[in-house]
């Protein structure tokens, strides 16, 4: 499965990555290589095999509906890039 620069551009946008022109060529090459590697999976017929999403079969554990967390806004926002009045700031979002 060979990718072209347009494919890689689309993937990069989906992942919110900015890829420069020279980088793009290199990524096209290496991503195609990796897809060739993973393409080896097709050597095995997996029809009817149930997919394995988790290593163990244990069911989801449910917790009681109780409040266990305190307000830690100050310590959380000390490490934030930009805050004001207790809010995280990002460039204006236009809807």
């Amino acid at each position: 499965m060979a990718l072209d620069p347009t494919d890689v551009g689309k993937i990069a946008e989906l992942a919110r990555l900015e890829i420069s022109e020279p980088e793009l060529t290199s990524y096209v090459h290496s991503l195609t290589q990796i897809l060739d590697l993973v393409g080896q999976m097709n050597a095995v017929d997996t029809a009817g095999i149930s997919p394995m999403a988790h290593p163990s079969d244990s069911p989801l554990r449910l917790r009681q509906d109780i409040v266990t967390e305190q307000d830690r806004r100050q310590s959380f926002q000390e490490i934030a890039p930009a805050t004001e009045s207790g809010l995280y700031l990002v460039p204006k979002v236009i809807e």
């Binding site: 109780i66 967390e69 830690r72 959380f76 207790g86």
Partner: peptide, 28 residues
Amino acid sequence: TKSKLFSGAAIAFGAEPNTQACEVDIAL
């Protein structure tokens, strides 16, 4: 519910911003 779907932070409308967002909610 009293607490969130996947964390033990409280749920109440109108609280001061980000005071009911614990480490799980802010995705540390």
